[in-house]
Nucleic acid binder design. Structure first.
Length: 603
RNA sequence: GCUGAUGUAGCUCAGGGGUAGAGUACUCCCUUGGUAAGGGAGAGGUCGUGGGUUCAAAUCCCAUCAUCAGCUCCA
């Protein structure tokens, strides 16, 4: 039985729904009712609740437009106004099939047939509200009139039962809340999300851009590159503390490598393959641009005869990866075709796995704390063996058991993501919640018994015999591109001092104060602080406005008063007032802030 | 890849079968101004690309590319 069929079962078997979910579920029912009124030939798929609301999949002879959403909403208001009761009824499977067949609802008939064949259902329930009957597990509100605050949000296509082999239905998303106030809050949050969209901010803050000449591949402008490289520097500082060695590996490999690793079989279609050798030399060998770093690291591991004394050997690789993702899946920085991970491969013994993963979890906690994500909100997942995988089940049993022991040991709650593992091993995936409470999967820790096997990695143990090491794959930020996209939205583009592309802007009030600012500029440069001088012939109002729009952490203003006493008027981003401080005090404070990311890693 | 929408100046957008519009950014001039927009002038575009229809296409049609919202996928 596939997971999708389990999900299908959930939509018809009674389960616990909280008050809000019940409301949304009923709202979806009312929406279907309205659609049926407007288009009597509508055929319905499923209409569950989701995290932010609900949807219903519908097969309609017409293509819906956003204007139609208004029409449907209007009809829904009419239905809600009528205030009919939701009435539950039980039917035998045969009776239900007959009923929905007579109503020309083939998808409902298919659901019922699946329930019988796969779940052994003998009866199903329906809910009737007014003159609209729907196959449904319930529960529902007592009456439709209890729906007070809802909104239809968007239209999308969705395959019937999630398979691209099936017809595509029109999915209508809506949301509903217990009160109008909560609905308004939700809509405001969506507006805020639009304001924070990293694609918009990336353009406005001149961090990066995309061009059709290299689809889904970011061009980092100078300011974006500063942030990007600063992130890498942070990871490198962390590596020094955790004793990781950085390596640099090739970009293009004979596909023999990918056949050996299994990537060729699993991901050939998503790899950039160079057919006739490199650079048109036509040596007859097939090459591929690397989509992953891991196989390359085995060559460095195996460059020497390894001793157990060398372990754990931690090899970090910031290699640039290319994956030819399907055109429809790419999105801003969060899903790109070229990216770089804070990737590392730890070669160790089975006994060392727990301690090593413990250290990686430590990195995760310290890192996400530094970036201002709420650690209490971290969600852990144990992603287990997928259907398409390499290796024997006993190996998977062992790997999954190890990760489970480690997760149990953290004392944190975690969920099982059944079938969510990589083809070569199970994973611990970590999701963070951003400032708008949206979840993002960034960090990952994977346990791999296949890689050392396929590439015949070995070390000599204390017993003077050869042994197979275990490999742990780790990425804390994940892809730097994705992390940056998520982080820009988390902080709404206002980077902390240490990460900001321009850390301060010096503003002379008139030309007369420019030399004083240039003098300060020299001191900042000597300390590696990134600054700009706004020497334009403009007024303070405009310069202030533009420094704020550029979200520069500090504005240092100098006029007659400051020049006379060796001061600057310092205004922090977002602050209303400024504070007048002596030059030395300002420099000391800046150096302290610049040092912030190193603090957790002092011995 | 699939469904739908969008593509006009660096950026944000309006317009629309008959020689292309605004704001902003940019350049120049005036203004030397104390914390969110001082004033003026100028320059800037084969309307994503390729076909078709038409006397005439940026506008209509087809194809294609890219982006966006979802679906499917994410080593």
């Amino acid at each position: 039985m596939s997971e999708k069929d389990v999900a299908l079962n959930e939509i018809t078997e009674p389960t616990e729904l909280n008050e809000l979910e019940t409301l949304r579920h009923s709202c979806a029912h009312v929406m279907a009712h309205a659609i049926r009124k407007l288009w009597p030939e509508a055929k319905f798929g499923i209409g569950p609740t989701v995290e932010d609301g609900f949807y219903y999949d519908v097969d309609l002879p017409v293509k819906l437009t956003t204007d139609d959403l208004k029409k449907i909403e209007k009809e829904m208001h009419r239905i809600i106004g009528a205030g009919e009761k939701f009435v539950r009824a039980e039917h035998s499977v045969d009776e239900a099939i007959e009923k929905f067949r007579s109503m020309n609802q083939p998808y409902k008939v298919e659901i019922i047939e699946t329930l019988r064949s796969q779940f052994g259902a003998t009866s199903v329930s329906t809910y009737t509200e007014g003159d609209f009957v729907d196959l449904c597990r319930g529960p529902h509100l007592e009456r439709a009139s209890k729906i007070k605050a809802f909104r239809l949000m968007s239209l999308a296509g969705a395959y019937w039962r999630g398979s691209e082999k099936n017809p595509m239905l029109q999915r209508i998303y809506g949301t509903a809340f217990l009160t109008q106030v909560e609905l308004d809050e939700h809509l405001n949050l969506l507006e805020e999300a639009k304001r924070r969209d990293h694609r918009k901010l990336g353009k406005e803050l001149d961090l990066f851009a995309f061009h059709a000449i290299a689809p889904a591949s970011p061009f980092f402008h100078p300011k974006g590159a500063i942030v990007y490289n600063r992130l890498i520097q942070y990871v490198r500082d962390m590596y020094q503390y955790y004793e990781y060695d950085e390596v640099i590996t090739p970009q293009v490999f004979d596909t023999e490598l990918w056949k050996k690793s299994g990537h060729y079989e699993h991901y050939k279609d998503n790899m950039y393959i160079v057919q006739e050798g490199v650079a048109g030399k036509g040596d007859g060998r097939e090459h591929a641009v690397k989509p992953m770093n891991c196989p390359a690291s085995t060559y460095i591991f195996s460059a020497h005869k390894r001793s157990y004394r060398d372990l754990p050997l931690r090899l970090a690789d910031f290699g640039r990866l290319h994956r030819n993702e399907l055109s429809g899946v790419t999105a801003g920085l969060t899903r790109v075709r070229t990216f770089c991970q804070d990737d590392a491969h730890v070669y160790c013994t089975l006994d060392q796995v727990e301690a090593e993963i413990g250290k990686i979890m430590d990195m995760v906690v310290k890192t996400y704390t530094l970036f201002g994500f709420d650690i209490a909100d971290l969600e852990l997942f144990l992603s287990t063996r997928p259907e398409q995988r390499m290796g024997a089940d006993e190996v998977w049993d062992r790997a999954e058991a190890s990760l489970k022991t480690i997760l149990d040991g953290t004392g944190r709650k975690y969920a099982i993501d059944a079938g969510g593992g990589a083809f070569y091993g199970p994973k611990i995936d970590i999701k963070v919640k951003d400032a708008l409470k949206r979840k993002w999967q960034l960090a990952t820790v994977q346990l791999d018994f296949m890689l050392p096997e396929n590439f015949d990695c070995s070390f000599i143990g204390a017993d003077n015999a050869a042994h197979r090491p275990v490999v742990i794959h780790k990425a804390v930020l994940g892809s730097l591109e994705r992390f940056l996209g998520v982080y820009i939205e988390h902080v709404a583009g206002a980077f902390p001092f240490w990460l900001a592309p321009v850390q301060c802007r010096l503003i002379p009030i008139t030309d007369a104060h420019l030399p004083y600012c240039e003098e300060m500029g020299k001191k900042l440069r000597a300390r590696g602080i990134r600054y700009e001088i706004d020497s334009r012939n403009e007024k303070m109002g405009l310069k202030t406005r533009e420094a704020q729009i550029a979200k520069i952490p500090l504005m240092l203003v100098a006029g007659d008063r400051e020049v006379a006493d060796g001061l600057f008027a310092v205004r922090s981003y977002g602050a209303k007032d400024s504070e007048t401080l002596p030059v030395d005090g300002i420099l000391a404070r800046m150096e302290e802030w610049n040092d912030l990311p190193k603090k957790p890693f002092r011995r």
